[in-house]
Amino acid sequence: MTKHLIISAQKLPVIDLNAANAPIIFDGHNDVLLHLYRAGGLSASDSFLTGRDGALDLVKAKASGFGGGFFAVYIPSPLDKAFKMEEMAKPSYDLPLPDAIDWEDALPVAISIAAILFDLENKGALKICRSAADIRATLAANQIAAIFHIEGAEAIDPDLHTLEVLYQAGLRSIGPVWSRPTIFGNGVPFRYPSDPDIGKGLTDHGLRLVKRCDELGVMIDLSHLNAAGFWDVARHSTKPLIATHSNAHSICPHSRNLTDAQLAAIKDSDGMVGLNFAVAFLRDDGRMIPDVPLEQMLRHLDYLIEHLGEDRVGLGSDYDGAIVPQDVTTVADLPNLRLAMAQHGYDDVLMNKLCHGNWLRVLEKTWGS
C-alpha cells in the first residue's frame, strides 16, 4: 500500500509539465457543455477557446496537461441551486429528487447540447473520439480528446431509435440515469448518510438498453445508478463495469459512493472507477464544503487502488458540475494534484496509469478497439 503523506491545504506549486511525474490527464467526467448551453449555446462556444469563467476551457487545458475525457450531455432539471448547496452543507441531508423528464422534452435539449460539442470540434478546440485508437492519436497530436457521453438517458426513446442515431453521430458512453428516474431505471438521491441501496433496479427498457449498448460498443456508466440497478447491469452486461465519477463509500458514506461489494464486482469484471472531485463525495462528513485537503483525495485513491488494483483506477473530476477542493478548483490546478500524487509515493508507472493509461485500457476492452 502506498504510504500516506499529509498534504497542506495551502496552494501547492505548479510542477514542470515535461517532468516524468506529470503525465497527461484523461478525465472521466465534466459538465462544461451544460455551462456553455446555459451561457448561450453555440454563440458561447468561442469562450471555450479563448478562456471562460469556469473550470474547463482550452486555455486552461493546454497550460496544465489536460488531455481530454468524457464530455457529458446532461438535461438540466429546474433546481434551486442555493437551496441544494445550503442543504448539502449540513451534517445530514436528503434532497428530494427532481421529477422525471419525458423523451419529447429531453431530446431537443440533448441535441442542442450535443451540437455545442460538434461545434467545438469544427472550431478545432477538440476531437470527438470513437475508439481508443482515436484517443491515442489525438493525445499524441496534442489535441483534446473528447468522448461524447450522455448522463441520464432521458433523450433515448423506449425503442432505442435515438440510441442508434446518436451512436452514428459518435455517442460512445451513456449513464442510464442521472439521479432522477428514467424509463430505464432509478438513481440515488443526494442523501447523507446513506448507502446506494435505494429503490428498484433496471426496468425492461433498461435491460434492453444495456444489451444494445453492449452490442454497439457504447460504455455503460454506473455512476448515479442505485444499488439494484448496478447489480442488474453486473448480471446482464458482458462488458467491464465502469463508474466514471464515484468514490469509496467506506470513507464517505454518501448514497452516491460505491460500497466494497460494488468495488469487488467492478474488479471481477476488470472494470474501473474514476475518482470524483466533488467535495460532498470526498469528505468523511459528506458536506458540500470546499475546504478539503488533497490528502483526502489521496485517501480515496489509495482505497480504490487497494480494492480494485492499480489498473482499474483513474480520475473523474466532475469539473463544471460540482464544488471541488480549493487546490484543484479548475483544470489549471491539476498540476497541484499530480505533485501531491508524486509526493505521496506514486511512481511514474502508477502515475501514468491513474492519469490516463487505465482509461485507455478499459475503453479499448469495452469498445473493442
Rank of each mutant, 00 (worst) to 15 (best):
M85L: 11
Y93H: 04
T50G: 00
S77N: 14
E104G: 11
L58T: 00
K90E: 01
S77T: 14
G40T: 06
D94I: 03
K81C: 03
M85S: 14
E86K: 13
F71D: 03
A100D: 06
R38M: 09
D94A: 15
M85F: 00
E86W: 02
S77E: 09
K62L: 11
V59P: 05
D46T: 07
F71P: 01
L58I: 02
V59C: 05
I75H: 02
G65Q: 11
G68E: 05
L58R: 08
I75S: 05
P78Y: 00
G65P: 14
G68C: 10
G69L: 12
F66D: 14
A55V: 06
L49F: 05
G41R: 01
T50D: 07
L79K: 14
L49C: 07
G51F: 08
D94K: 06
R52M: 11
P78G: 09
L97T: 05
D57V: 06
A44Q: 03
E86H: 08
D105L: 14
V59K: 07
A82R: 00
L58H: 05
Y74P: 04
D80M: 00
S92E: 15
R38D: 10
G40M: 03
I75G: 02
P96S: 11
S64V: 04
Y74I: 14
F66H: 07
D57K: 11
A82K: 02
G67S: 14
A82N: 03
L49W: 04
K62Q: 15
A55L: 08
S64A: 15
G40V: 02
L42H: 09
V73L: 05
I101E: 04
Y93R: 00
Y93D: 00
K84A: 15
S47G: 13
F71S: 00
W103L: 13
D105G: 12
K81M: 13
G69N: 08
I101N: 07
P96D: 05
D57N: 15
